[in-house]
Design a protein around this nucleic acid. Structure first.
Lengths: 249, 249
DNA sequence: CAGTGGTCTAGACCACACA
DNA sequence: GTGTGGTCTAGACCACTGT
């Protein structure tokens, strides 16, 4: 499939998205090398028979994803490719692992209601000392411990719906469960990333010697209504995990 | 200043940007609370006398910056505000520190040409064992060590221009120097973030005990032509520094 | 139903880069 | 000069949300 083959007719996918995907795969394949320019907006209009706004929307997306930069008078220039797959797009642990070619699994250690510490009530924007649903899970990749996730969910989710069981949590992604059962999609988050020396109980869970380094992420997630959904603290083995992110502008 | 005051006439700033700034400050000020909706696109058209494409571009920017989400049929919904200052937008160390209310300074330990290790030649996309310009700098905030930056610059920068001196580097941001002297703006980067136990020489520089944790960032920066400009490895004291990032979609 | 954002068209004028 | 992306207008039809 060449990048400029005609688009299929009347499928329920936006034109701008189809065009962006064409260019994206062409870049991945190496048809456009880093430093080279993509076809101009006018050219895309001719090739795909669309208006300029549509082809611009395609390029907007590629720019936002860090694949190209655009310069007035020059064109849309391909940026050196990512070495790895993922980036800082929103993704749960399971998806993250699959993209790295590893098989994710969970061991749920605890589920239940507990009194939330201040760090949590602040993040979830609820009253101090309120009781919230907590889960504690060991995260594994190809069967080996890689991280430990402690997660608190907003009480507002469980007015009508029962919280997930340990089985639910072992079965798959928490985010998928929230989407299926609560109709809540997590669409963004704020994260703090820190380094620390592993604590005793966490060393046992992660199966690392005392004195090892861990990578810690504290994540506040929000749904499409803009309100907090989950607060999570994740510890990762420093020898098996690193964050990868793409920064623009 | 209310968010819907008339826009000044004929200033050389895009309308969509001015509108986005109005809404941004209104959100920061609390005129629109988290979970509330912003004025609809049609309303913005009336208020500012612009076309729908223009008001949409404003909202696109706010969405990209993680301030709002949009739902067809509902509106543009304000997301809970960031606790800290900005986030994963491109910024050098100096700017980063100033945003945290700290005074940045540098102690340059070394500048000169050295043979680049494989990690560097790969990131800069140059031939193995090529000699490149390296700098090693201690990063300080309010006079106290906070990190250590080792940076390699692409040889292509110095065909016509002399590399920066230790004085240049002590004086201010490397990125500002590159912009001024080489006309190269860094517009994006790829980063890996890791945790580790501090090494002996680094412990001495950072003034931390052996066995402490450090946060390590490995950054490949590229300019507006999409080609690599700088590769840097930064070690941060875990007790004084953490990353903060905003994840969308 | 009316209002919302999502997508798309067909034009326009501008500043910028390069030959 | 020609071609590039940056900005902007004035329409249009659609799917979705709530009443």
């Amino acid at each position: 499939m060449k990048w400029d083959d005609p688009l299929p007719e009347s499928i329920p996918v936006p034109l701008w998205f189809q065009i962006a995907e064409r260019l994206r795969t062409a870049i991945k394949r190496g048809d456009f090398q880093p430093g080279e320019t993509l076809p101009s907006e006018a050219r895309l209009n001719q090739v795909f028979g669309v208006s300029r706004a549509t082809s611009r929307t395609s390029l907007d997306r590629l720019e936002q994803d860090g694949l190209i930069t655009r310069r007035s008078g020059k064109g849309s220039i391909v940026i050196s490719p990512r070495v790895d797959q993922p980036v800082n797009e929103m993704s749960g642990f399971a998806e993250d692992m699959r993209r790295r070619g590893l098989l994710p699994s969970y061991d749920t250690r605890f589920v239940g209601r507990i009194r939330a510490p201040a760090e949590v009530t602040e993040a979830l924007e609820i009253k101090p000392n309120m009781r919230v649903y907590q889960s504690r899970r060991l995260l594994k990749a190809d069967g080996r411990p890689i991280g430990f996730a402690v997660s608190w969910l907003s009480p507002s989710l469980f007015r009508r719906i029962r919280p997930p069981s340990a089985d639910d949590l072992n079965r798959g992604s928490l985010y998928e469960w929230l989407a299926r059962q609560c109709g809540v999609k997590i669409i963004g988050a704020r994260e703090f990333i820190e380094a620390a020396i592993v604590q005793k109980d966490m060393a046992a869970e992660l199966n690392v010697p005392l004195g090892s380094a861990v990578l810690i992420a504290r994540r506040s997630s929000h749904g499409s209504n803009g309100l907090p959904v989950e607060y999570a603290v994740l510890h990762f083995r420093a020898d098996r995990y690193r964050f990868h992110l793409q920064v623009n502008r």
